[in-house]
Design a binder for these strands. Structure first.
Lengths: 347, 347
DNA sequence: ATGAAAGCGCTAACAC
DNA sequence: GTGTTAGCGCTTTCAT
């Protein structure tokens, strides 16, 4: 088998065996040009029989298209990027497009190296992803001679950008709590320097009333504990807590349990991110807002493909809806409210 | 700038401006052939001045080397694969090698598609990674006409395979507990169908004594709780618990706290995986065994590079050492045992 | 020391 | 309908 190493079948071989010229073979295989159906079929069958697979490099060299795109990410932890990647891959794999993974750890120099390498390798486009929608990657992609799509990271104003709809997600969560009959809602979330925090807090206030409190702190379980300690010092503690992420929510739920407050009987809790590992391990499992990151990746893949093919794509920011994933930290009887459930999941 | 799209500088341009032939230019830039130092420098400088970047596809076509490798993974969750990827990238990026990310969700068909795509794109080698060292990917890579390295997944006997040293990691953890003066050690771990579970349990028993109990269960926090419930029914509960992963360890620590048992005063707990998000959020933060997955990725990267360059690489399974990361769930005074600390960290 | 020319494997004009 | 020919951008003998 070692001898077979260099013996890859070329289109030349197919042509010879099929008794045609390489040109005809090429056309036959690519369904271009004109010829007898018989010839076309014959060529295709010999190609199949010989196990011919075209050399993508050679093809790229002439076609000016490599069927390869680059995925630039600075989310080394992968919590946000991973689902996005999965979606991108899903959208591109059956189009024969491969993805170069380029992890730049917020490092401009590393970013430049990767971008240069991609350019050298003639990628058809670049998808940039990050962990915050209000931060840019440390590399400038705006002057590149190829299409760029920004997913879950900030891009130039005239770029194609994809983000999830923080406001809508927060609104759904808040309305869900209100629909449950909760009256005293509080939003415990991350630092207000995050754009997504403001967006969610804004939507929360709009739905819950301007008087509803919003508490900012770090994105940690510890902050969830601290927030509960603070809230339960008041005369009338809340009966529903909407958290900025699942870690805070887990801290909140744990703190409540330790305090003897029953979740969901006494207090409903909702998280954000739907990070399975946290949401499912919480006792009780967290109802949480899912940002649909995989779908976001899929859309990004489709868009970069369209751009690479020269199809027109409207620039601007596209927001994709979030989805509330109901587990047990809220209470309420799902089966008794089928309409509402459909309403929320039918997005 | 849109016009510049097609105006990539070719070696032809460099040659013309430098006043030499393309052949000379090529040699000058690649530090091959023989010529005046003056000529070489001049060519290099014009190339730099013109911003020349060689077309990797064209180069690959002639050189039979694409400077591209494929990363096949079935760990969609990314907990194990992600650090491995980071290591691979780190090892390859400065060698100018790019990585194709191929996520196959334990799906043989998807796997084949990706492998074929990689072959078409002339990758110089493939690194296969998974989430278990005793499971194979659903694709056969053994007959491929290019080098393959298996990292954190099972490969054929004669392949180059990388795994972390479960036994050594478990031994270090156990010895650490013993060194702390703990007497009644218990190992609470995952299903014994996992090879790594057996390896760790074996090492644990060897170090802690054959009488030391090993409890198997699911890889979940809930199992940690259950195990504690079970253990504390006995007349003499353990004073040290070594857990098979951090989630179990977190469950154990939480259960102990709820029971009023002080960690680390009364009981020392050690986890496995050093999954930051779990280990750091536990109260108190978990001491845990780190599998050094990033280093494993680095080594995999170097090996696939060596193989691609035709350098000889001894086949077989290579085990990489784990490292105990000390936090606060064990007690003991770090500063008082500098030797031991060095001993463990100097790996 | 330098350059002309032949290819790497494929596609695409343009003849026939 | 099918084949001839000329590249894509680069590397690499082999002359000179």
């Amino acid at each position: 088998m070692d001898v077979a190493k260099a013996e890859r079948i070329r289109i030349y071989d197919v042509a010879r065996v099929a008794g045609v010229s390489v040109a005809t073979a090429s056309k036959a295989l690519n369904d271009t040009g004109r010829m007898t159906d018989a010839t076309r079929t014959r060529v295709k069958q010999t190609a199949l029989a010989l196990g011919f697979r075209p050399n993508a490099m050679a093809r790229a060299l002439t076609q000016q298209r490599s069927f390869t795109i680059g995925l630039l990410t600075n989310d080394s932890y992968g919590r946000f990027t991973l689902p996005v990647m999965a979606g991108i891959n899903e959208a591109l794999v059956d189009q024969g497009v491969s993805v170069f993974l380029c992890g730049i750890e917020d490092d401009a120099a590393l970013g430049k190296i990767h971008v240069d390498a991609m350019l050298d390798k003639q990628v058809d486009g670049i998808i940039a992803t990050g962990k915050r929608i209000d931060r840019r990657l440390p590399v400038d992609l705006s002057e590149l001679p190829l299409p760029v799509v920004y997913a879950f990271t900030e891009g130039p104003a005239d770029a194609v950008t994809l983000v999830s709809d923080d406001a809508q997600g927060a609104r759904e969560a808040t309305e869900w709590l209100l629909g449950l009959g909760r009256q005293r809602l509080v939003h415990v979330t991350g630092p207000d320097s995050f754009a997504s925090v403001s967006a969610r807090a804004g939507a929360f206030r709009e739905a819950a009333g301007a008087a509803a409190a919003v508490l900012h702190g770090p994105w940690s379980e510890a902050w969830g504990h601290a927030a509960v300690a603070q809230l339960w010092q008041q005369e009338t503690p809340p009966d529903a807590i909407f958290c900025g992420n699942d870690q805070i929510a887990r801290g909140v739920v744990d703190a409540l349990r330790e305090r003897g407050v029953d979740v969901p009987a006494d207090v409903s809790v909702i998280g954000f991110d739907n990070w399975e590992i946290v949401a499912a391990a919480t006792r009780p499992p967290l109802t949480s807002v899912d940002m649909n990151l995989k779908e976001l990746g899929r859309v990004a893949g489709r868009l970069i493909l369209d751009l690479a093919e020269g199809k027109p794509v409207e620039p601007g920011i596209r927001t994709l809806p979030c989805k509330l994933v109901v587990r047990q930290s809220c209470g309420g009887d799902m089966l008794a409210r089928p309409n509402r459930q459909e309403e929320l999941q039918g997005i």
